[in-house]
Amino acid sequence: MAPALMAGYGLVRLAGRAVGDYGPGVWWSAAHLLFLAAVIAFVPVLLGLRPPGGLRGGRRLAFRVASGAGLLGAAAVAVQAVIDLVAGFVAADDRAMSEIFEKVQDVPGVMPVVYTVVPLLFWLGLLALVTLLALFRRGEVPAWSPLLVLAGVVMAAISLDLLAVGALCIGLALFPMRRGLPN
């Protein structure tokens, strides 16, 4: 569900831009509600990608660090989505929304914590978890899964216009793990 919601955000965003009405209003709000729902839906994914048992030492630590990083990044992305939603609700137009974003982003620490550094941990944590699973659970997680996650993340980083395709890549990467991993 999480990649589908993320793709929905990308598609609604594109549709709003196509009709020339992607600013404060219905398209913005609908897209960012889907964005927030996607991030929340990724929390159980990040938790579920940790093998339930049988790992010791460095492997166990690697999964915990990757999961923790992903969850921390997801929290930052969720805050970003909430800020976007609030700005969209209270702003009368694009200019007013830009002023709100400037005020928020001028607060010391907000840029790295909410917009630039910490949100990257969401994507890196997801990629790390899928990569670890592909390495340590070879019979259950295909080697191409991390490559698809990487492709999806890179597409989203290149342009939010590619987010729907990137989310599709991530969804395909996670598909083999949809029912969880055996012990």
Results as ranks from 00 to 15, higher is better:
residue 2 A to P: 08
residue 4 A to S: 10
residue 5 L to N: 00
residue 5 L to T: 06
residue 7 A to H: 04
residue 9 Y to P: 02
residue 10 G to V: 02
residue 12 V to R: 01
residue 13 R to A: 07
residue 16 G to K: 01
residue 19 V to T: 14
residue 22 Y to L: 10
residue 24 P to R: 03
residue 24 P to N: 00
residue 24 P to S: 10
residue 26 V to S: 14
residue 29 S to R: 14
residue 39 V to R: 04
residue 39 V to K: 03
residue 39 V to A: 05
residue 42 F to I: 03
residue 43 V to A: 14
residue 44 P to K: 02
residue 46 L to Q: 03
residue 47 L to Q: 09
residue 52 P to D: 10
residue 53 G to S: 13
residue 55 L to N: 10
residue 59 R to I: 03
residue 59 R to L: 10
residue 60 R to Q: 13
residue 62 A to S: 13
residue 63 F to S: 08
residue 63 F to Y: 12
residue 70 G to M: 02
residue 70 G to S: 06
residue 72 L to K: 09
residue 72 L to S: 15
residue 73 G to A: 05
residue 73 G to Y: 00
residue 74 A to L: 11
residue 76 A to E: 04
residue 77 V to F: 10
residue 78 A to G: 15
residue 78 A to K: 05
residue 80 Q to G: 05
residue 80 Q to A: 07
residue 81 A to P: 08
residue 82 V to Y: 02
residue 83 I to K: 06
residue 83 I to C: 12
residue 84 D to G: 01
residue 85 L to W: 07
residue 87 A to R: 10
residue 87 A to K: 03
residue 87 A to G: 13
residue 90 V to Y: 07
residue 92 A to S: 14
residue 93 D to S: 00
residue 93 D to R: 00
residue 94 D to L: 13
residue 95 R to E: 14
residue 96 A to P: 05
residue 96 A to R: 12
residue 97 M to P: 04
residue 97 M to L: 14
residue 99 E to W: 04
residue 100 I to H: 14
residue 103 K to L: 12
residue 103 K to T: 13
residue 106 D to W: 05
residue 106 D to E: 11
residue 107 V to I: 15
residue 108 P to E: 07
residue 109 G to E: 06
residue 109 G to S: 01
residue 110 V to F: 05
residue 110 V to N: 00
residue 112 P to Q: 09
residue 114 V to W: 09
residue 114 V to M: 05
residue 117 V to F: 07
residue 118 V to M: 08
residue 118 V to H: 00
residue 125 G to N: 07
residue 127 L to P: 06
residue 127 L to T: 03
residue 128 A to I: 02
residue 128 A to D: 01
residue 129 L to F: 08
residue 129 L to D: 06
residue 130 V to C: 01
residue 133 L to G: 12
residue 134 A to Y: 04
residue 134 A to C: 09
residue 135 L to T: 11
residue 135 L to G: 13
residue 136 F to K: 08
residue 138 R to A: 14
residue 141 V to D: 04
residue 146 P to T: 06
residue 147 L to A: 15
residue 149 V to H: 02
residue 149 V to Y: 06
residue 151 A to I: 05
residue 152 G to Q: 01
residue 152 G to C: 01
residue 154 V to Q: 08
residue 154 V to D: 10
residue 156 A to V: 11
residue 157 A to Y: 13
residue 158 I to M: 13
residue 159 S to I: 04
residue 161 D to I: 00
residue 162 L to T: 06
residue 163 L to S: 12
residue 165 V to A: 15
residue 167 A to H: 09
residue 169 C to F: 12
residue 170 I to T: 11
residue 171 G to R: 02
residue 173 A to Y: 01
residue 174 L to E: 07
residue 175 F to N: 08
residue 176 P to D: 03
residue 176 P to A: 00
residue 181 L to S: 12
residue 183 N to P: 15
